[in-house]
């Protein structure tokens, strides 16, 4: 018994001391950083995103569907993000840049912005997460978006970067802006967890990639 008590006392002191050393000498993330991380976690839970982009004068509806796709080079599954803008423009990304399918291919910058504004959840969470880890500085402002209380989270450089608006306190994504200011390209986001998968694949995924999709 004396042996166990002695061991327990030493171990409790050690755990406390080790915790104290870490707490005393290492900085902790700011509240803004933690809100941003939670918002990215919430974003990544969705697999389908409906959005209305305002890139040009006329708003366009877009739809994004995400699924794992077999990468034949590495024999592993990678994130595939598939986007339909309007009724005809199809884009996809398998981690090697945005690809376009359809008539009248736009300039790469336009295609990339259109793809980003579609707000593909996991793709966006990855990009914004990288910006957060790289720049660390994050700005979170309490605002109202579409009449609901929201956080405006600015990722990346103050003069450029990306702004994600999420509902308070659920952190459901509401809006995305590719830069600060009122004139930055933006889109309203409407995420959904479920959807008719077969229909989405039929509508969004290029035929050549359909047999490489992971099921379930």
């Amino acid at each position: 018994m004396r042996t166990l008590v002695q061991a327990a006392v030493v171990l409790v002191v050690l755990v406390g001391l080790a915790f104290g050393v870490q707490a005393a000498f290492l900085n902790v993330p700011s509240n803004a950083q933690l809100v941003a991380v939670d918002a990215l976690k919430a974003l990544a839970r969705y697999h389908v995103m409906d959005s209305t982009e305002q890139l040009s004068t006329r708003p366009r509806r877009s739809l994004c569907f995400e699924n794992r796709v077999l990468d034949r080079k590495t024999d592993s599954f990678v994130l595939g993000s598939f986007v339909l803008v309007g009724k005809r423009q199809r884009y996809y990304d398998l981690g090697h840049g945005v690809q376009f399918r359809g008539a009248g291919e736009p300039a790469y910058k336009v295609a990339r912005n259109r793809f980003l504004l579609a707000g593909c959840p996991e793709f966006l969470a990855q990009r914004l997460g990288s910006l957060l880890l790289q720049w660390r500085q994050i700005r979170v402002t309490d605002v109202r978006s579409d009449g609901v209380p929201a956080f405006d989270i600015h990722f990346g450089r103050p003069d450029l970067g990306v702004e994600l608006y999420v509902e308070r306190p659920s952190l459901r994504p509401l809006e995305l802006a590719l830069g600060p200011g009122a004139f930055a390209p933006r889109s309203d986001l409407e995420p959904t967890r479920a959807g008719n998968r077969a229909e989405l694949i039929e509508e969004l995924v290029p035929t050549a990639l359909r047999n490489r999709l992971r099921r379930g």
Binding site: T3, L4, V10, L11, L14
Partner: peptide
């Protein structure tokens, strides 16, 4: 008996330190 207690603590000290790191991460990054 006291030395045995200290010996047991020494054996378990490294896993205990891992536990403290986990506790710290729980506290700092949630």
């Amino acid at each position: 008996p006291e030395a045995r207690g200290r010996a047991v603590a020494a054996v378990l000290a490294a896993p205990a330190a891992l536990l403290s790191f986990m506790l710290y991460l729980g506290w700092a990054v949630h």
